[in-house]
C-alpha cells in the first residue's frame, strides 16, 4: 500500500505566537516550530497500516509511507521527525511564492504534489491530521478530497482497511457514524485514534539516509499567481491583540468560598 501523509510545520503553541507586521500572515520565523502535534497521529496511523501489511518471513513492510509538507525551508524539521518515527521517504514543497497561502491555495499545492507522487506509483491512501495547531480551520482535508476527487473519510477516531475498502468511525456532536469508501481515499485522523510513537535511536540514525525530495511550484505545474497571499480570496482588515482580561477577583477559600462563588453568580444573574 502506497501511503502519503501530509504534515504541517507550525509555530510551537507553547511559545508566544504572532503575526508578520506587514501582511498579517502567521509569523513562522520568529518562533520555534515543530511538526504539528496533531499530525503525529496521522504518521502513526500510516506506519501502523504499513506494518500491518508486513510480509512476515522477510519482515519487509508491504506499505510505503511518504511524508509530505508544504512550507518554508525550516519545515524540513517536520519531515525529519516523521522519518525518524519510521516514514520511508519525504517530499518538501517549498517556494517563496507559497508564503501566505490560505487553505484553498495550500490544498492546491498539496493536491498537485500528491498527483506527482502518484506518477511513480499510484497512491492508495492520503492521510492527514484533524487540524493544524496554528490555523485550526480543519478544512484542508475536505479541500484535498475535493481537489483529488477522492472519497472523504475525515475525523476518524478509528480506521480499518480490508480488501481495498476503508472504514472509519467519525464521532460527531450528536452521533457516531461509520463511513465507508473504496480505496484510494483521503482519511484525516483525530487524536483519539492511536498513541504516536517516539522515534527510536535506530529511527533517528536511519532517518538521515532516507530520501527527501524538494520541489518548487514550477515542478508541480503551478504558477506563482495561483498560490500565496495574492491568490487568497480573503483579506485581513486588522489584527488586535486581545486586551488583557481585566484582572478578576480571586478569593481564598476560608470556609465560605462556595458562598462567595454563589454570590458572584447571583450578582451576574446566572442564578
Amino acid at each position: 500500500m502506497n501511503i502519503v501523509v501530509c504534515v504541517k510545520f507550525v509555530p510551537d503553541a507553547q511559545s508566544e505566537r504572532g503575526f508578520e507586521p506587514g501582511d498579517h500572515t502567521t509569523d513562522r520565523f520568529g518562533v520555534p516550530g515543530r511538526l504539528s502535534e496533531l499530525d503525529e497521529y496521522a504518521v502513526e496511523a500510516a506506519l501502523t497500516l504499513a506494518t500491518a501489511g508486513a510480509d512476515a518471513p522477510t519482515g519487509e513492510p508491504a506499505g510505503r509511507v511518504t511524508v509530505m509538507t508544504v512550507g518554508p525551508p525550516a519545515a524540513a524539521e517536520a519531515i525529519k521527525k516523521a522519518l525518524q518515527m519510521g516514514a520511508d521517504a519525504g517530499v518538501h514543497v517549498t517556494d517563496e511564492a507559497i508564503a501566505g497561502s490560505d487553505a484553498a491555495a495550500t490544498s492546491l499545492v498539496l493536491a498537485a504534489a500528491i498527483r506527482r507522487i502518484g506518477e511513480a506509483a499510484p497512491v492508495d491512501l492520503v492521510l492527514t491530521g484533524m487540524a493544524s495547531t496554528d490555523a485550526v480551520m480543519s478544512v484542508v482535508p475536505a479541500m484535498l478530497a475535493e481537489r483529488l476527487d477522492l472519497p472523504q473519510l475525515t475525523l476518524a477516531s478509528q480506521l480499518s482497511i480490508e480488501g481495498g475498502t476503508a472504514s472509519i468511525r467519525r464521532d460527531g456532536d450528536l452521533a457516531s457514524q461509520t463511513v465507508t469508501a473504496a480505496l484510494p481515499a483521503l482519511v484525516s485522523v483525530t487524536d483519539q485514534i492511536n498513541e504516536p510513537r517516539y522515534p527510536s535511536f535506530k529511527g533517528i540514525m536511519g532517518a538521515k539516509k532516507k530520501p527527501v525530495q524538494t520541489w518548487g511550484i514550477a515542478d508541480l505545474g503551478l504558477r506563482a499567481d495561483q498560490v500565496g497571499l495574492a491568490a487568497s480570496a480573503t483579506v485581513v482588515e486588522s489584527i488586535t491583540p486581545r486586551p488583557p482580561r481585566q484582572a478578576g477577583q480571586v478569593v481564598k477559600d476560608d470556609g465560605d468560598g462556595g458562598r462567595q462563588l454563589a454570590d458572584f453568580l447571583r450578582s451576574r444573574k446566572f442564578v
Binding site: R245, Q249, V250, K252, G258, R259
Partner: peptide, 28 residues
C-alpha cells in the same frame, strides 16, 4: 486558569462546589 478568570476561588473543589450548590438550591 486564574489569569483568565473573572472570578476565582482558591480552594478544594470538594468543599467549594457542594457549598455553592446547596446555597443556590436554597435560594431557589
Amino acid at each position: 486558569i486564574f489569569e483568565l478568570a473573572d472570578f476565582g476561588v482558591v480552594g478544594d473543589l470538594f468543599t467549594v462546589l457542594p457549598q455553592a450548590t446547596t446555597l443556590i438550591e436554597q435560594a431557589r
